[in-house]
Simulated scan of single mutants.
Amino acid sequence: MSDARFEDGEDQPLRLIAQEGEGLTVLSALLQDAIFPITEMAYAKARRRFALLLNRFRWEDRAAAEAAARRYERVQSLLVFEDVLAVKSTGIDRKDRDTVLSLMSISFAETSEGAGEVTLVLAGDGAIVLTVEALDASLRDTTRPYLAPSGKVPTHQE
């Protein structure tokens, strides 16, 4: 069994931007259940940039995978926020370098004209809050899709 390839389908790597709340909602849906080691997030204060390298479930490919009776896929993606003034986290131990986090959702709350807070909600009651001068987010797939190790669609307990 080999990994999935972009050539196997019509899909192309995602390259999306969000500069308003609606766009961030799209990114949030695509990134639900993305996983990343705590070591793969970085805040470059001087550049005002926060970035995450994560492994996202390919929700956009789910129906095609089911129709073709093939395994589900993940892909490594880079999520970047520009114009970040501050970063806070709650519910996670940033010193535990072995922690793997799971992203549940991303939201934006405007505080003044264009400025606001981006909240990345993590499984297990954790969160990362970015204070931004303006909403400027981008998502870019950086690798080819690979077969999801679990072979299953992520589920959540209510």
Rank of each mutant, 00 (worst) to 15 (best):
L78I: 06
V84Q: 00
L85D: 06
I35T: 14
T99V: 11
A123Y: 08
P37E: 14
F81L: 01
R56G: 04
L122E: 02
V80I: 10
T99Q: 09
S112Q: 14
L27P: 06
A68P: 04
T90D: 15
T111V: 14
Y43A: 01
K45W: 01
L78G: 10
R58V: 02
T90R: 15
A42S: 10
E66V: 08
E82P: 04
F81G: 00
L54F: 05
T39A: 09
Q32I: 01
L120S: 00
R71W: 01
S102D: 08
S89P: 01
S77G: 04
E82H: 13
F108A: 05
A64V: 06
A46D: 15
D33P: 03
I106Q: 04
D96G: 03
A63H: 08
K45T: 03
M104L: 15
A86Q: 12
T119W: 13
L85C: 05
A65G: 13
G23W: 12
R97D: 07
D93F: 13
G116W: 12
E82M: 05
L24S: 04
R58N: 07
S89Y: 13
E22R: 15
G23Y: 11
L53W: 07
S112M: 12
D96S: 07
A51G: 08
S107Q: 11
A63F: 05
S107E: 12
R62Y: 03
L78E: 15
K88D: 08
L101M: 14
A64Q: 11
D33Y: 03
T25G: 12
G91D: 08
V84N: 01
G114P: 05
F81V: 00
L85I: 06
E60C: 09
R62M: 13
Q76L: 10
R49M: 09
L85M: 09
D83R: 09
V80L: 03
R94D: 06
A51T: 09
A115M: 14
D93P: 03
I35N: 03
T111M: 09
R47M: 06
A68C: 09
K88N: 09
A67S: 14
A86P: 02
S105Y: 02
A86G: 07
L52C: 12
E113D: 12
T25N: 15
T25L: 14
A64E: 12
I38F: 01
L78C: 11
A46V: 05
E22N: 15
E60R: 08
D83E: 11
V75K: 11
A115Q: 12
D33T: 03
A69T: 11
T99N: 05
E66Q: 15
T25A: 15
Q76I: 02
D93W: 13
W59I: 03
D33K: 06
A67Q: 13
V121P: 00
E73R: 13
L31T: 05
G23L: 07
Q76C: 04
M41T: 04
T39C: 01
D93R: 13
A63G: 05
V75F: 10
T111S: 12
E66G: 14
L79A: 02
